[in-house]
Structure formats: C-alpha cells, structure tokens
Simulated assay, not measured.
Amino acid sequence: MQTSDVTGRISSLHVYPVKSCAGLALPEALLTETGLDLDRAWMVVDEAGEFVTQRELPRMALIQTAFKGDVMGSGGELVLRAPGMLALHLRVDVVEAPTRVRVWQDEVAAYDMGDLAAQWFSDFLVPGGSGRPYRLARFDPEHRRLSSMDWTKGVEAPNQFSDGYPLLVVSQSAVDDLNARLKAAGQPLVDIRRFRPNLVIDGWEAHDEDRVGPIILETDEGEVQLTPVKPCSRCPIPNIDPDTAQSHPSVNDTLQAYRQDARLNGAITFGMNCIVTAGVDRWLKVGQVARADYAF
C-alpha cells in the first residue's frame, strides 16, 4: 500500500435519490461523472418549477427512499414511503413530459414524473390539501449542469440536482468530535444523516477532508481520484431531526463556535465538496482504502 499522510477506509456510502428526502446507505455504488449513480436524480418543485427542500418543508426528511429490482437495467423502481401514505412506485427508466426546472441559479432541462407523483407529494407535504401543489422532476441526463469553475479551477464537473458539486465527503471523526461537544453542552447527539454526505471516511482525524489534496480510493478496478474543491457551507438542515422532522438549533449553534470558515466569509462549514477527476464508471465499496496527502 502506498504511503500517504492520511489513510482510512470508506465506512459508508450514501445516495439521496430525491433531493432533500431521506437517503440510502449502500454497500456499493457506481461512480459516474455527476457523482454516485442516481444521486439527486429527482427533485421536488413548486408550481413555478422552483426546487424546494427541507429548508422550507422539513417534512421532506420523513420521505423514505428505496430501490427495488435492477435499477441498472429495465423495470427497476424507486419506491417512496411516508407516514400515513401508501407507497409510491416509480419506474427508474420511465419519465413523462419534458419540462424546465430551477435549482438555485440554474434553469435545467428535466422530465415531469406525472400527476400521480405530483398528487402524492402534494398530499404529504401539504396536509389537508391547502397551500401550493408540488411536482416531481427527473434530471435530463442530456443536460450538462456544471459546478462553479471558480472553485473547480476551470475543470468541468457536471452534476445533477445536488446543490452544486458531484460528491460530499465527511470524516466520521468530524461527527464524533461534534457529538463530544454536544454531549459536553448537554445536547442530544446526532448521526451522519444530518450532514447528507455521499462518502464517510473512517480512520482520518476530524476534518482532515478540509486539509487534503486529491483523495485516492483503491477500488477493485483501479484507483479513483476525488478532488476536494469547496468547503460545504451549512444551512439549517443539520438542525432537523431526520426521524421527526423537528428542528432544534443546537447543532448549528455548536458548529458556530468552531466551524466558521474564512474561505466562505465566516460561514459554518462541515465536509468537503469534491469532483471526480479520475475513475469514472468504477464501483465504490464500503471498506475500500481512502488515502490523501495534506495540501497546505
């Protein structure tokens, strides 16, 4: 094994099929140029086509996602479940009408997923039938939405409906360190779900992901290289309990004391956004070695 400044292993892999709904922990995931396969491939929008998230609709945290069947072939399904709702089954390989939607400042090509999906989300997110209707959109894979090249240093890094980058990497020790601070303050502990990472790395020091250059993952098919490009600034979502959808300020209040990042004008950051710089179409698996060198 090659010697590096930091060496650990992938302790978990996560995809979030529908942006801002609950994610899935997977034993393995296919790496594409836009991140893990089917990560943020779907997104909930309002009647104007604007994306919505837990920031406005904390109940989205209660929508559970699962895949059924062969999602790499034909006939696989995305299955959505929520309290008080019948399960919604959507074919992974089927879309309906083309549409345009907006995620942050980007207007992108997408496909509407139909009236049944729209009714399901509206019924759950607007109990009692009052308020705005919502629809579900699927990213058009022919559309090329790029990460900010100011941060990628000119590298074209496409992504789907993520906030802006293909992958988010978090060290497990960063969560452990936060929990130690929460415990000392008499606050409830939290788990990794609060931070919605794609890769969690065990064996690194807390926040080593902030300090390293390219991350090398040793896969069965050869090395994968992920390049950290931008610290992940944090909105109120880490305050939302994924099991209850209730918000409490203890998480961000605690982070405010030690995670203000000068690179983002003092914003709270936790985890690093990464782009894929080598190894597209290789399989990442829990337990694979993750190593990097410091880049001060």
Rank of each mutant, 00 (worst) to 15 (best):
G186A: 08
I192A: 11
N159R: 05
G186Q: 06
V6T: 12
A206M: 03
S173T: 08
A48Y: 06
K19G: 00
D202A: 15
P249M: 06
F195G: 03
K19S: 02
E77P: 00
P127N: 13
E156L: 12
A22S: 12
V15M: 08
L80R: 06
N273G: 02
R234F: 07
P58N: 13
T244K: 01
G84V: 11
P228A: 05
L36N: 05
D115M: 11
P166M: 05
G129H: 11
L62P: 06
G186S: 10
T7Y: 07
L57W: 10
I216L: 15
S233Q: 11
A137L: 00
S162A: 14
M1P: 14
D253G: 08
G23M: 02
T254M: 06
D191W: 02
F296I: 12
S147N: 06
G8I: 02
V92D: 00
M272G: 01
T244Y: 03
P238H: 02
Q64C: 12
T65C: 13
G203K: 03
K285Q: 15
V45H: 01
R59T: 12
R194D: 13
M43E: 03
L284D: 04
L38S: 05
L226R: 04
R193A: 13
S11P: 06
V94R: 15
Q246G: 07
Q54M: 11
V126E: 15
R193C: 10
R40Q: 07
L168Q: 03
N179E: 04
P242I: 04
V101S: 09
P228I: 10
L125P: 04
G186V: 05
P158F: 06
I275F: 08
G23I: 03
L86R: 15
I240G: 04
Y258R: 09
A22H: 06
E77C: 04
H248L: 08
L26C: 06
D140C: 04
V126I: 13
Q256M: 14
H207L: 08
W104S: 10
A180P: 02
L168R: 00
G8C: 08
N198L: 03
G49F: 01
S148A: 13
I268G: 01
R211W: 09
C235T: 02
V18H: 03
T53H: 04
E33I: 08
I63N: 05
A137E: 00
L38F: 10
S173Y: 00
R145W: 11
A48R: 07
T32L: 08
Q2W: 15
T227F: 10
D202C: 09
E218D: 15
V280Q: 13
V71I: 11
L36C: 07
V251K: 01
I237S: 03
T99E: 15
K230Q: 12
N198F: 06
A117H: 01
K153S: 12
V276K: 00
L80D: 01
F124Y: 10
Q225N: 12
